[in-house]
């Protein structure tokens, strides 16, 4: 039997395992070393690996992301922690305009093996500037890979794969997941491939297609639907780019109905891409329009009451399901 870990500890274990495996792997970010990390993912690492490989940066996201890119182009494999993914907005030029373009602009001469990771999405009352779900924005950009695991097992396996990938990978960790517990396989070589969705719960009547923390929201919704005699399948997309349409389509072919659930703003969000692809590729299988459940189209408010109003819940999923029939 494997060990039970929290999502936070699973990410930490993956970081440590990869640093032990490969000397060229290092991690940099704000307050990740001496301060042990704002969300404590890097706790203890500074003591074990020292300032050469666990690097406290100044609060200059664009600058240190660029340094990581340059180091990746010249032989290292950096892991960049964004204290929150909202701060990656300051580094967008470096990520979109530089990292994502290197392999192409150089005609394949160079690559950027780096991982940018951190909490993305609403935590608890961090309000408008610290609560963004940006994974869909990154998934819009060719040259990047984007993953959003929902369980400790997926986080551990996908993180190791991300570090070993020769392309820039955005690895988003919803802060609401850090305390989620799960079992890791008892296998040091365990990895999860990027670009493979998984069925989080089998069902026959509809597909709830989701990623990151919304997987847990959908699992709760599926449980409640089961009480009503409705069998919902939960498809955990895991990887936004590349997107595993094969698994999603197979699920819809079986259930004939789909609801896409994502925490990002509903309008123009990544769920729209998934919904559109289901519409294009599964039209003959569908018995109802593909619906989206997304975050409210407002800046995330501070008030807990208002904040909870913004984030999709099992109730919002059930409300959408009612519109399906």
């Amino acid at each position: 039997m494997g060990v039970e870990l929290t999502y936070r500890d699973a990410v930490a274990k993956a970081i440590v395992d990869e640093m032990n495996r490969d000397d060229s792997v290092y991690i940099m970010g704000e307050d990740i070393g001496r301060y042990q990390g704002t969300f404590r993912v890097t706790q203890g690492m500074f003591d074990d690996y020292g300032p050469k490989r666990v690097i406290d940066t100044p609060i200059t996201e664009a600058g240190f992301t660029g340094i990581a890119i340059g180091s990746a182009m010249s032989g290292l494999r950096p892991i960049v922690e964004m204290m929150t993914m909202s701060f990656s907005i300051l580094a967008l030029d470096q990520i979109l305009n530089h990292a994502a373009k290197v392999h192409y602009m150089t005609g394949g001469q160079a690559s950027v093996p780096m991982v940018i990771r951190g909490p993305g999405g609403a935590a608890k009352q961090l309000s408008a500037q610290h609560s963004h779900s940006l994974e869909g924005w990154f998934a819009h950009c060719p040259g990047l890979k984007v993953v959003a695991p929902s369980t400790p097992e997926c986080a551990y396996g996908l993180f190791k794969t991300s570090v070993r990938d020769d392309n820039p990978v955005i690895f988003t960790e919803n802060p609401g997941l850090y305390t989620v517990k799960g079992e890791l396989p008892d296998d040091d070589d365990f990895t999860v491939p990027i670009g493979k969705a998984r069925i989080a719960r089998e069902g026959t009547d509809m597909s709830l297609v989701c990623y990151s923390r919304m997987v847990h929201v959908c699992l709760e919704a599926a449980e409640r639907l089961a009480e009503q005699g409705i069998s919902a399948e939960v498809v955990d997309v895991r990887s936004l780019l590349p997107l595993d349409m094969e698994t999603i389509s197979a699920s819809v072919a079986k259930t004939n109905r789909a609801v896409v659930v994502y925490e990002d703003w509903k309008f123009g969000g990544f769920g729209g891409e998934i919904a559109s692809r289901i519409g294009e590729e599964c039209f003959d299988d569908l018995d109802a329009p593909v619906l989206r459940v997304g975050g409210l189209n407002v800046p995330t408010p501070y008030s807990r009451v208002l904040e909870l109003e913004c984030i999709p819940s099992a109730d919002s999923v059930l409300a959408a399901v009612e519109r399906l029939s």
Binding site: T65, G66, I67, G70, S74, G75, D93, N97
Partner: peptide
């Protein structure tokens, strides 16, 4: 991108030190 390569060049120097 004007100025965009400066941190990247700094990262290339970072590798040499590393």
């Amino acid at each position: 991108i004007v100025g965009g390569h400066i941190p990247i060049g700094t990262g290339v120097a970072f590798t040499a030190k590393y």
